[in-house]
């Protein structure tokens, strides 16, 4: 492009560049600033607080829960009482204790499946964005195929073939169906970054493609990757709960999904035990909301226009 362009400016940036002196920020400061940006967003702050609550609940479940998760022998299908704040299940287990222990499964699945999906998305997205020609077209087709094939039905079918696989199976299924979206987002960002002059300049500096991808391009996509992690974790938590609710997971473990599975199978609707229906679903919804809320702050890092503040 050889069009003359105005020396860099636009109407809103028509101010002298401030040139602070002193030491450059080290990685920790960058991290702190990123975290600060997220924290400064009211919605994201609420999300972080909710997430922290559930993480602490999961870690300290053995200390907090009044009873064991599968400890039965209490009155069956009892209503709330001082001993059992949320009542008991049809099998005579304490609902509150199950709820607290159940946090472990959701958070574990969310973190692991979210991280694995993101890892696949980063690897596919970056290499796909950096290659051109026929191979890129083939990957494009495969990713689009994974995007249009409806996830949950595919999960159900795979889970049906792999019947009784437990948590591991659920994670695998969630990752298989969940990586494509992130890959597409990261690919288009990689493509836009690779056409930037600083990437061409890195080629001129004698850098190898591997280093260009991981040292020049990848660090410029941090917020997108963080965002796609939270997105994938949210989807994983909801998918895991859905599969377990359908009885396609291991229904002997205690998780929020299986609690609802047993609640429905033991006709909690008819017995009127609303706490048993209400509480696990609310926990899933809150945990998933917290991740969505955090993403409001993450969006603000990558796209300053989305930052909070009155605009008009």
């Amino acid at each position: 492009m050889t069009t003359t362009r105005q020396p860099m400016r636009d109407a809103t940036q028509d101010i002298r560049t401030v040139q602070p002196t002193g030491a450059p920020p080290n990685p920790w400061q960058v991290f702190a600033r990123t975290a600060g940006t997220i924290w400064s967003n009211g919605k994201a702050r609420l999300g972080l607080i909710i997430l922290a609550f559930f993480v602490l609940l999961a870690i300290f479940a053995p200390l907090i829960a009044p009873y064991g998760a599968t400890e039965n022998g209490f009155d069956r299908s009892a209503d709330a009482s001082p001993e059992h704040w949320l009542g008991t299940t049809a099998a005579g287990e304490d609902v509150l204790s199950q709820l607290i222990w159940g946090a472990q499964i959701s958070i574990f699945v969310g973190l692991v499946a979210g991280a694995l999906s993101t890892l696949v998305a980063v690897l596919v997205g970056l290499s796909w964005g950096y290659t051109r020609g026929f191979i890129a077209d083939v990957i494009n087709f495969i990713v689009n195929l994974f995007l249009v094939i409806p996830g949950l039905p595919l999960m159900i079918v795979i889970a049906a073939y792999l019947s009784g696989g437990g948590i591991g199976m659920i994670i695998v299924v969630v990752v298989i169906t969940g990586w494509a979206w992130g890959a597409r987002v990261l690919r288009s960002q990689t493509q836009s970054l690779r056409s930037r002059d600083f990437v061409t300049a890195a080629v001129f500096s004698g850098e190898r493609p591997f280093r260009i991808v991981f040292r020049e391009i990848l660090p410029n996509m941090t917020s997108l990757i963080v965002g796609s992690f939270f997105g994938a974790a949210t989807a994983a938590i909801l998918a895991e709960a859905g599969l377990e609710f359908l009885g396609l997971g291991d229904s002997s473990i205690v998780s929020w999904g299986t609690m609802l599975f047993w609640a429905q199978n033991s006709n909690a609707l008819l017995t009127g035990q609303w706490a048993l229906l209400f509480a696990p679903g609310l926990c899933i919804a809150l945990l998933a909301t917290s991740l969505t809320l955090i993403n409001f702050g993450v969006d603000g890092i990558s796209n300053p226009r989305l930052r909070e503040g009155k605009q008009r």
Binding site: M1, T2, R5, M8, R196, D197, F198, T200, A201, A202, V203, F204, S205, G206, E216, N220
Partner: peptide, 16 residues
Amino acid sequence: HSEVQMVFQDPYAALN
């Protein structure tokens, strides 16, 4: 590239 180097048009885009 050890012998032929380039100076880019846009100094804002040419540095990571």
